[in-house]
Computed example of a mutant assay.
Amino acid sequence: MTARIARFFFTALAFAALTPVAYAGHYPVTVRSCNRNVTFTHAPSRAVSNDVNLTEMMLRLGLRSRMAGYTGIDGWKTAQPSLHDELSGLPELALRYPSLETLVASGADLYVAGWNYGMRVGGPITPTTLARFGIASYELTESCAHVMPRPAASFDDVYNDLRNLGAIFDVDARAHALIAAMQARIDAVSRTLGPQVERTRVFVYDSGEDKPFTAGALAMPSALIRAAGGKNVMDDIAQSWTQVSWESVVARNPQAIVIVDYGAVTADQKIQFLIGNPALANVDAVRSRHFIVVHYDAATPGVRNADAVETIAHGLHLAAFAPRPAAAEQAAQGR
Rank of each mutant, 00 (worst) to 15 (best):
D85H: 14
M67A: 14
G69A: 11
R60T: 13
Y97N: 12
C34Q: 02
G69R: 11
G114M: 01
G75V: 05
L93S: 07
L90V: 08
T41Y: 14
M58G: 11
D74N: 14
E101H: 08
A105S: 13
A94W: 02
H84R: 15
N37R: 14
W115D: 05
V52H: 04
N116S: 13
P44V: 08
S65F: 00
N116F: 04
L83D: 10
P98G: 01
L83S: 11
P44H: 09
G107W: 00
G72C: 12
S88F: 10
S88P: 07
A68M: 13
S49N: 08
Y70Q: 11
V48D: 06
T39E: 09
Y117S: 14
M57S: 12
L93K: 07
N116H: 08
A43T: 14
G107R: 00
G107I: 05
R60G: 08
S106L: 00
H42V: 04
A68K: 08
W115F: 02
R60Q: 14
M58F: 09
V112P: 01
K77P: 01
Y70R: 07
R46T: 10
R36C: 05
N53Y: 00
R64S: 12
V52W: 02
N116V: 05
D51T: 12
S88T: 13
L93N: 06
Y97K: 08
H42P: 06
F40S: 03
E101T: 01
D109S: 08
R36K: 14
R36S: 11
R36G: 06
T39V: 04
L103P: 02
A94S: 14
M57C: 13
S49M: 06
R46K: 14
I73W: 04
M57L: 14
L59E: 10
T71P: 06
A94C: 07
R60E: 15
Q80V: 14
G114A: 07
Y111W: 03
R66A: 15
P81R: 11
A105M: 05
W76T: 10
E92Y: 03
S65K: 15
R32W: 00
P91V: 08
E56I: 02
G72L: 02
A108G: 04
L93T: 06
G89C: 09
T55F: 03
Y70L: 10
C34V: 10
M57R: 03
P98I: 03
M58I: 07
L87T: 12
M58W: 04
M58E: 11
M119W: 01
R46A: 13
D51V: 07
H84P: 04
L54A: 09
L95N: 06
R60I: 01
Y97H: 10
L83Y: 13
V112Q: 04
A43W: 03
Y111A: 08
L87W: 03
G72D: 12
L63V: 06
L95Q: 13
G114S: 08
Y70N: 12
E92A: 07
V38M: 04
G75T: 09
R46H: 15
Y97E: 10
L103S: 02
S65R: 15
L110V: 07
T102K: 12
L87D: 13
